[in-house]
């Protein structure tokens, strides 16, 4: 192995703050390093790769934040007993206190309870959006990548177009056609997520389609479909998983932005974007009405991005 390669390896490890990569560099995988290779392989197959041998505190926090968000979405009453819709006119615009940790709004409703109950709408819309993006994107990508030619050209031009229009504008166009509401917002955000999944899947399929071990599998007598299912899909799974987490974060942002603009659920409903929007008129008087729901959105997005990063580096490691 040349010095340049060795430096590259260690330099990479150094700059990314991750383990020293013992992965062989293609043909030059050294025999003597077999022991190291083995070690790396075992680690990569672990449930969650932990960077630098230390327990990734940030990853654990990210997982905890996502778990909390899911809990809030499905069992909101576990986190708060206060009704999100009924206000108490006496307790209007109260700053955060032990009774109301996020304060109360202009109608005396508990902001924390509204945030907790809002997660159901926002998160399920985001999840639905990602599901739409993944399913359509991966199907398009698989077809385009595996059956080159006319199908590929047609699909990819459509994907080009979807990508040429900024995601938020594309979602807004879909909403114009479908009308307002959480379900339509989910659909609109999902459509905007298709191109990235389609492109990634296609790129990965094309990359692995000509891989030497895939050629070998054909020589081993496997049919086209078996090759796709047994050798190519397992390779594509990892990168897609990373993109799912990343796109989930973007979907949360897009869904709450659309609901902030007033395209989501109508006002009494608690939706994260809507909560922030409700607080606009009280910026000077009640900072907590905008600050806390916004922070929750940021926390969930950050957590999703972090998880994506972990999944992604595990992919690179492989």
């Amino acid at each position: 192995m040349s010095l340049a390669m060795e430096l590259q390896k260690n330099g990479q490890a150094e700059t990314f703050g991750e383990d020293v990569r013992t992965e062989g560099i293609g043909a030059s995988t050294p025999d003597q390093k077999g022991g190291n290779d083995r070690q790396g392989g075992n680690r990569a197959r672990g449930l969650l790769r932990i960077r630098g041998g230390r327990l990734g505190i940030i990853e654990i926090l990210a997982l905890a934040a996502l778990a909390l968000a899911v809990l809030a979405a499905f069992w909101p009453t576990l986190l708060t007993g206060v009704d999100p819709l009924t206000g108490d006119p006496v307790n209007r615009l109260l700053p955060p206190s032990l009774d109301h940790i996020f304060g109360t709004d202009h109608l005396g409703r508990d902001v924390f309870s509204r945030t907790v109950h809002g997660s159901a709408q926002t998160l399920s819309a985001s999840l639905a959006a990602v599901a739409i993006g993944v399913i359509s994107g991966v199907v398009i990508g698989l077809i385009a990548g595996f059956f080159t030619g006319v199908l590929d050209a047609i699909f990819m031009r459509i994907v080009d177009v979807l990508q040429a229009i900024p995601g938020l504008l594309l979602s807004m166009a879909v909403i114009t056609a479908l009308g307002f509401g959480t379900i339509n917002v989910a659909l609109a955000v999902g459509v905007a997520a298709i191109p990235s999944f389609a492109r990634l899947t296609r790129a990965e399929v094309i990359r692995w389609r000509s891989a030497e071990f895939v050629r070998a599998a054909r020589a081993d007598g496997l049919s086209t479909l078996s090759v796709l299912a047994r050798h190519i899909l397992p390779q594509v799974r990892g990168p897609i998983g990373a993109l799912v987490a990343l796109e989930f974060g973007s979907a949360v942002l897009a869904v709450s932005a659309l609901s902030f603009l007033g395209f989501g659920a109508p006002p009494p409903q608690p939706e994260w974007g809507l909560l922030v929007s409700e607080g606009r008129d009280f910026l000077a008087a009640a900072w907590w009405m905008t600050t806390f729901p916004g922070l929750v959105v940021a926390a969930v997005v950050l957590a999703a991005n972090r998880i994506s990063h972990v999944v992604n580096s595990e992919k690179e490691f492989r």
């Binding site: 293609g26 043909a27 995988t29 891989a211 030497e212 071990f213 050629r215 070998a216 599998a217």
Partner: peptide, 15 residues
């Protein structure tokens, strides 16, 4: 007719 490639790590499915 079987083929043996120079780069064995590329020729074997890593999974």
């Amino acid at each position: 007719i079987r083929y043996v490639h120079q780069d064995s790590s590329a020729a074997l499915d890593p999974n």
